[in-house]
Design a protein around this nucleic acid. Sequence first.
DNA 1: ATACTTATTGATAATGATTTTCATTACCGA
DNA 2: TCGGTAATGAAAATCATTATCAATAAGTAT
Lengths: 140, 140
Amino acid sequence: MSAEFWLTQLHENGYRITGARRAVVETVEKSTRALTPVEVYDMSRKRYRALGLVTVYRTLEKLEELHLIQRVHQPMGCQAFISAGQGHQHLLLCKNCGQVVFFEGDDLESLTKSIAKKTGYQIQDHWLQLFGMCANCRTN
Amino acid sequence: MSAEFWLTQLHENGYRITGARRAVVETVEKSTRALTPVEVYDMSRKRYRALGLVTVYRTLEKLEELHLIQRVHQPMGCQAFISAGQGHQHLLLCKNCGQVVFFEGDDLESLTKSIAKKTGYQIQDHWLQLFGMCANCRTN
DNA sequence: ATACTTATTGATAATGATTTTCATTACCGA
DNA sequence: TCGGTAATGAAAATCATTATCAATAAGTAT
Ligand SMILES: [Mn+2]
Ligand SMILES: [Mn+2]
Ligand SMILES: [Zn+2]
Ligand SMILES: [Zn+2]
């Protein structure tokens, strides 16, 4: 899942490849923690000086639409984005440094069945997110 | 968990009981779906005409601080609040009408242990939220 | 390569949500 | 009942996001 792939995806969906988009894509794609639009702006401007914040918003919008990135919800705010996981995956976030890891293998089958029976709801979706302290932050 | 209890909590924590707070508390406490500040404002103004939106923000802030309400995160936005569940509970939300139900009994013990070993993270917390269709919305 | 069409851009303005300021009001303990 | 002061609402300020628009440049056709 390289920056080139993201650019290809943009192109294949009728969007043009521009310097501004290249900069944003390269910044977001390689980040291992969720970034806010302003963070993306600041970091991408080192690659493409003329970049405007508005273009960051517009590019993030398109990347989300193509499922290349996803919004990350946190206690402190919900406007950060990270490279999307593939398939059915959930996030594990370091409370200290924000480092993100994806995991899979959660089995909520029996739980949802039981809750569905108890509540009368037809359960369709779930959000699961783990918070903790990464190995690095734990030692330092 | 009545409105009177909430007012008592406010009082016991050094806050005064006012008409504005009464109105907000009564509105939020009895709602079975998450409400945004403006929704709280509109609904509470029927009880207390002179209410200002700023006071709604300030009251919600205090109620959250006292753990009487909690923020609800949803795909469409994360600025809505609902009466908090007691103990370790999670939310089940109707995608159609927003009706909220709390549930407990989720067991993520083995999952978190496995993820902790795999990632090196020390896992401290989790967010779990279910989405679906309530019995009412399903029949109508 | 060159010209041309039009998507994209960044600056600017507009909007919307939340917070701050401040003079006035009213809660509540003495 | 009174007085100190927390709380209030109006207005202004701030912050995040979105809309407008003329200039630019990506990509296609020539
Ligand atoms: Mn959220
Ligand atoms: Mn749980
Ligand atoms: Zn960390
Ligand atoms: Zn419903």
